[in-house]
Design a protein around this nucleic acid. Structure first.
Lengths: 450, 450
DNA sequence: ACAGTTTCCCGTAAATGC
DNA sequence: TGCATTTACGGGAAACTG
């Protein structure tokens, strides 16, 4: 046995790094008081061998330590202190079916250890800029030999409320992009290095791929670039990304919007999304009346989407954009349904839908048809109750601020009225009417069939 | 001083009950892990006098105890055990400005003490039927004299989730109605005595007064009576009220609905609310087209309200009821606004509002006008965006299940069409159109002024 | 007074226990 | 297995704290 211990000691010296550790889903953002779990598996073959020997069975104990050996003396900034709510200590065992040396810490959670002196304001980073680590210490004691084998997680950010998730994620991304191999600089955000747009754009695109199953295209990236990069060297600075102007907050709001309500449409590529208002107008003005596209609101920082459509009926093309829909509003009614049922209210409370073709020329039903909520389903009211539908509309024409009332001189009106008259005469003398659409009909009406 | 203690001892014997205690807002329902506070004030004048003497200042210590002296041996049913999260012990002092002997326990909270044997299912009451008490024990020690002076709260119900509040409240009410003076029977719900409808109806009415600033009227009470009382002796049984049929759950859902969304309308008496569907039809059929009333859904147990209106345009009066609105749906749009903007979609997507007079004959605007959201406000879209309005509508005529399409033989249609035609001719040749309503106009349109 | 941060707690969903 | 009850925790708001 003493031979084994000797072998072990040597092995440890040789296999310096990584001694152990494989954290497939490493913790990234931890919220105080909320449970998380970490799976630790050992990579050293010798260990695996030893652990199978009965004599060593209970000699390998693993214990998690928060921010171990973070020398506060050297730190430029003061960090918060945390500890685990339940001190867990696990005996390593060959648990898994394939014989791997694995242990999993479940039900872990963090609580803050409040020190009296928290340092002055300028002595601290934002909490989401503090990078912490969890170290797993394995103690091995045997006949005079005592070894402490350690392995640490990559940096984690500790938050106390879900409102901090977004900026915590920014830190995680920034850190990941700057970490080369093993360098784990917990003080990274004391003086955060800039990134190239090249680096950042890939990561951003990756976020959209993960969330919405589709990357950002050239045009979309170009718009983001214009928003984020104002450096001749193509560099992005941390303050621009997640501090002062906080471009990330806006982007993350949109990611969340996609995740919650627009995964399908984003995957389909139906959402142009990142496009300026000016460019939207340029594109749509070339198209036929009723062409529309979807773009994200640039003013709302919590994720909102609007549709813009072009109307050529008054001669010169005019592009309208609907007041953007927020996550809240998409909770009960999907964007396709909003698109499908939106209408303009014209004279005599007559409603018509101005959205016909998704840019460049895809019929609305082709692009969104299979996402429309079945009208029959939607309208199934309870026994004896009149079912109701909920729809958005705007007044048409989009009112000029003044004058509110004036004689109509627009020839279009007369033409429309004449058509209406014609239809009426037809209906009057055809001797029969078609009932208005019932359950299951789509909103977009065709002229009544005589 | 020994004279004082002698006096005190005598006083305590004489003033047996209540020795102390006044709990203006006694705890009623306590949720585990959620903080609450109890204010205890002493009524004994001698105490007040003593407490002012320096020698006694720190001799009166008060300590809360949960379910003190609840002899489990005698209990027929097994109760859960609880304790306070933080053991507090307060020194009684003359704190308040008016010299009252008062102490307040803040930051109190309960946690369950889990025993291994919880008793069989039939050995337990529902958790909301367990009645507990909190006892405040005051220890007084002085030269050989040791007194424990106790005072208890009235029964409280301990819950662990907010979903239990409703049935907990039922227990509190039932207990209050049955408690005569000091009898505090924590085992009340082992065999809960019935109440007379006389008693219950008063309490129910009181609930509506507290919540919505208006009691239940005769008609409303009569409807509730028919629902709850099925006993020739006018008795209401606990099981009917809050167990099997659970009338209270339904009523409490409506109280919550009123509290959250309908306080104004309920106070105004605009909500008939408790009225059967049959009676609704009876009342409305006597009235002119467009007369409507508001009633609570009897099928939805979480509080929902519907409007019913009468339509005489097809000869025989027909009463329609809208699919009821839930709390969720009233969150963003108020009932007055739903009423104000509801419409029926007729032929050619023409929308008209069928709601004109609140029963018996109050014009809609008179009853609800000042609750309508200002259309101008509602429509202020952000810069450059087209504002949108959200409205409910139903298809008109309310479709007969079959046949979905058939030639129209109804003379009304022809008449309507002729009118429409007439209007059009007028418009055509008048040479001018009126713009449709813009910001600030109400929805209800009058015929266009030629 | 204020902004960044934490705590509180409802309401829902999931887990747990009987 | 189903039902009653508890636990977990996101999200919004209040409370805290320098």
């Amino acid at each position: 046995l003493s031979l084994f211990t000797q072998l072990l000691a040597n092995a440890l010296v040789v296999e310096k790094q990584p001694i152990m550790l494989s954290l497939p889903q490493r913790p990234l953002i931890l919220k105080t008081g909320v449970r998380f779990s970490v799976r630790v598996s050992f990579l050293i073959c010798l260990f695996r061998f030893l652990a199978n020997l009965p004599e060593f069975k209970c000699l390998l104990k693993v214990k998690p330590v928060f921010d171990k050996d973070v020398e506060e003396v050297k730190t430029v900034k003061w960090f918060r202190h945390f500890d685990f709510n339940r001190d867990e200590c696990k005996v390593l065992d060959v648990d898994s079916p394939n014989g791997d040396l694995v242990t999993e810490f479940v039900h872990m959670s963090l609580k803050e250890i409040k020190g009296r002196t928290k340092g002055s304001i300028e002595g601290r980073l934002a909490v989401t800029e503090e990078l912490h680590i969890i170290t797993f210490v394995t103690e091995f004691r045997h006949v005079g030999l005592e070894l402490n084998i350690e392995a640490s997680t990559l940096p984690v950010v500790v938050i106390s409320a879900t409102t901090q998730v977004s900026s915590a994620w920014a830190s995680i991304m920034w850190n990941n992009m700057l970490s080369t191999g093993d360098s784990r600089n917990l003080q990274l955000f004391v003086d955060p290095p800039p990134l190239t747009w090249e680096q950042l754009s890939q990561v951003l695109s990756w976020q959209f791929l993960c969330t919405g199953k589709r990357e950002l295209d050239e045009n979309q990236l170009s718009v983001l670039r214009d928003k984020i990069v104002d450096d001749p060297d193509d560099l992005v600075h941390w303050s621009k990304f997640s501090k002062n102007e906080n471009a990330w907050l806006w982007i993350d709001g949109i990611l969340d919007l996609i995740k919650k309500h627009l995964v399908d449409l984003w995957r389909d590529g139906s959402i142009m999304g990142f496009i300026s208002r000016e460019r939207t107008a340029e594109l749509l003005k070339e198209k036929q009346t009723g062409t529309f596209l979807l773009r994200f609101s640039e003013s709302k920082t919590n994720g909102a989407i609007s549709f813009s459509w072009v109307d050529n009926s008054n001669g010169a093309p005019f592009v309208h954009s609907i007041d953007p829909y927020t996550k809240d509003e998409l909770e009960k009614t999907s964007l396709p349904d909003y698109i499908n049922t939106y209408s303009l209210r014209g004279r005599k409370s007559r409603h018509t839908n101005p959205l016909l073709y998704l840019y460049p020329d895809i019929p609305k039903d082709t692009a969104f048809g299979h996402y429309f909520t079945n009208t029959a389903e939607q309208m199934l009211g309870e026994h004896g109750y009149v079912p109701r539908k909920r729809r958005d509309f705007s007044d048409n024409p989009t009112p000029p601020p003044s004058p509110p009332r004036e004689p109509n001189t627009d020839m279009d009106m007369d033409v429309e009225t004449k058509l209406e008259y014609h239809e009426l005469i037809q209906e009057l003398f055809s001797g029969s009417f078609i009932f208005p659409e019932y359950y299951g009909s789509s909103y977009e009406k065709t002229a009544s069939t005589p």
